[in-house]
Design a protein around this nucleic acid. Structure first.
Length: 578
RNA sequence: GAAUCUGUAGCUCAGCUGGUAGAGCACAACACUUUUAAUGUUGGGGUCCCGGGUUCGAAUCCCGGCAGGUUCACCA
């Protein structure tokens, strides 16, 4: 048995009443739509003749009833439009049921209806649909949060009773999308962003591919995986943490360029920058290097900004970020020198550790050269890089899949683009020397043995592929969620995922109607017992029979259930004894 | 994982030093033929997150849970 609020009960009654009057609250037949709200607002003024006979469907979002005439707002996928309902137009005969009963009494905010009519402009200047006929398309049983907006003379929008509780918005994203148009817009932009990337890469004739999500060995990144089991094969499988090694196999196979929008899964902490599943696009192009890839990233992301905003400048929180090419470029050593004044490029491990400590970076003995450099960078540089910036040439220890630098010992050909203090992409000249790659994997295995839970595994099949020969290749991983956060100015990753991962909703313990009946409580009295706070039979059994009898009779009266007979003392005792 | 804040009506929130809950919107009824946060009058609606404790008495104080936000740490 479900506990319903007064409004939910009422809407269920209205649903019944509609049916009785012959209005199916959930009709099966299609409703012909020939216009959208946005279309009307955009084109009506200069093309009035075309809006004499329109048909539109949407959700009722507000009512302003004034006796025999009323205004309502209808929301479709493109926005809202006002509709005018006039009793004598809707009901030209003596029978005023359609207006008086169906429209005024049985419709609620949240219901979905279809209307037919013509467009006009009201005395106050609002473009409005004069409704000549309407049809109930879906009765909503739950009330929506009512968010009211007012636009003042300066054009500033004021929002009243905003629906902004993050938990409710994420758990019931459908409600969030209904009442918060800016949320709908964020996800539209996310989709546009992916379309722009796809078009850009397709124009270059790169192939969009799909590779396994269930992998017997996880690889391509340093992260802890989700583990699962295949019954028929009776084997452990992992949800991918990256698709890098599979895409490179395809480059070995002879494609010049491959990319995949990949859902990756990492079994790690959650925060406003981390969701257990996230989307990354990975791209591999043969015969290119990381410098070439930098040019591509600049061009692609500048294009995304233009497509989404019509400008290269995007406001993110307090910062105005400009994606206009060319972006600033630093080697990692240059960046550290720039922000700390210390040149660490010639230091050995002990000198590095000393330098790190002087700079206030916490160190421990397990940290090698690469880790130390990375820590200094993370502590002193990354957060300060607001405008898009390329950081190039990383220590080899941090990058087991990247090719050794063409001219500097101890580094690899790798870059990251940092924007708004966060990494948005990561790219290398890919390591294609199978002997070197095997050595790097073996070093990772050593790290694993020392307890590094994120160390990579050795992938024999991947090495076999490299042994057949992979051309020099540039590779890129670009985080779609993080890029969307920046491009839409959203502060947390949950705001760019429709359904972010959350702890399960707590389910309130609740006995069913059958449970109550089983102990001998009649249908009529079940709501009374629930109202008294006995949500489980267990709770009920603990009650004192005299008090329970008294309470039930009292509550029955309070709930004005005049048709329901009070139980006898013996009956109540029977509930508890059964 | 740590620190910190929050949890009261369908929604947004008040509720002081403890005295069995309030507002606005939403809902119901009535009035109202171009309103726009429509308006006016009247009314209904609460597991005050859950469980303990202190007390004559707890939404309020204490302890423990649960859920969420923020910041930090690890990771993209």
């Amino acid at each position: 048995m479900q506990l319903l609020s007064e409004q939910e009960v009422l809407r269920r009654q209205k649903r019944e009443e509609l049916s009785k009057l012959g209005f199916n609250p959930y009709p099966a037949d299609l409703f012909e739509v020939n216009v959208t709200a946005a279309d009307i607002h955009k084109n009506y003024e200069r093309d009035k003749l075309n809006y004499k006979n329109i048909s539109l469907a949407g959700r009722l979002m507000s009512f302003r009833v004034m006796g025999s005439a009323a205004f309502a707002e209808l929301q479709d996928s493109t926005g809202r439009v006002q509709a005018y309902f006039k009793r004598d137009d809707l009901c030209p005969t003596e029978d005023k049921t359609l207006y008086n009963t169906v429209f005024k009494r049985l419709l609620d905010i949240g219901d979905i209806i279809g209307i037919k009519g013509y467009v006009f402009t009201t005395q106050t200047g609002e473009i409005t649909i004069h409704v000549t006929d309407f049809k109930v398309l879906t009765k909503a049983l739950k009330p929506l949060p009512i968010v009211k907006r007012e636009v003042d003379e300066a054009g500033n929008e004021k929002v009243y009773d905003a629906f902004e509780d993050a938990e409710q918005r994420y758990r019931q994203r459908y409600v969030d999308l209904i009442v918060n148009p800016d949320v709908r817009e964020v996800f539209r932009k996310r989709s546009q962003l992916m379309t722009t990337i796809r078009q850009y890469l397709n124009e270059k004739s790169y192939l969009e591919v799909e590779t396994p999500i269930l992998q017997p060995l996880y690889g391509g990144a340093a992260a802890r995986p989700f583990k699962t089991h295949h019954n028929t094969l009776d084997m452990t499988l992992y949800l991918r943490i990256a698709n890098e090694l599979y895409l490179k196999r395809l480059i070995v196979g002879g494609y010049d360029g491959v990319y995949e929008f990949a859902k990756d899964f990492r079994n790690e902490g959650m925060s406003r920058f981390h969701n257990p599943e996230f989307t990354q696009i990975e791209l591999y192009v043969a015969y290119k290097d990381y410098k070439w890839m930098m040019e591509l990233v600049e061009e692609l992301i500048e294009k995304i900004a233009m497509d989404l905003h019509g400008t290269t400048q995007v406001k993110v929180g307090e910062n105005l970020i400009d994606f206009k090419r060319p972006w600033k470029r630093f080697t990692m050593f240059e960046a550290i020198q720039h922000f700390t004044g210390v040149d660490i490029s010639q230091l050995n491990e002990n000198e590095l550790r000393e330098a790190a400590q002087k700079l206030g970076v916490e160190t421990d003995s397990s940290m090698g050269k690469g880790k130390l450099i990375d820590e200094i960078f993370g502590e002193h540089c990354e957060k300060k890089l607001i405008q898009p910036t390329f950081i190039m040439d990383y220590p080899v220890e941090m990058s087991p899949l990247a090719k050794k630098h063409r001219s500097v010992e101890g580094l690899v050909e790798r870059f990251e683009a940092i924007c708004n203090g966060k990494e948005i992409c990561n790219a290398y000249s890919e390591l294609n020397d199978p002997i070197d790659q095997r050595k790097r994997f073996e070093e990772q295995l050593e790290l694993g043995k020392r307890g590094d839970a994120e160390a990579m595994l050795l992938d024999e099949d991947f090495l076999r592929a490299l042994e057949y020969g992979m051309p020099p290749t540039a590779g890129l991983g670009l985080g779609i969620d993080r890029l969307t956060m920046i491009m839409t100015g959203q502060p947390s990753i949950q705001d760019v995922l429709f359904f972010p991962q959350m702890k399960p909703e707590k389910v309130v313990q609740q006995a069913t109607a059958e449970d109550y009946k089983a102990v001998g409580i009649s249908d009529d009295l079940i709501p009374v017992v629930i109202k008294l706070g006995f949500f489980t039979i267990e709770d009920l059994k603990k009650a004192n029979a005299n008090k329970l009898h008294n309470d039930v009779c009292g509550m029955r009266k309070k709930m004005k259930l005049d048709n329901v007979k009070n139980p006898t003392m013996e009956e109540v005792a029977g509930w508890l004894a059964s």
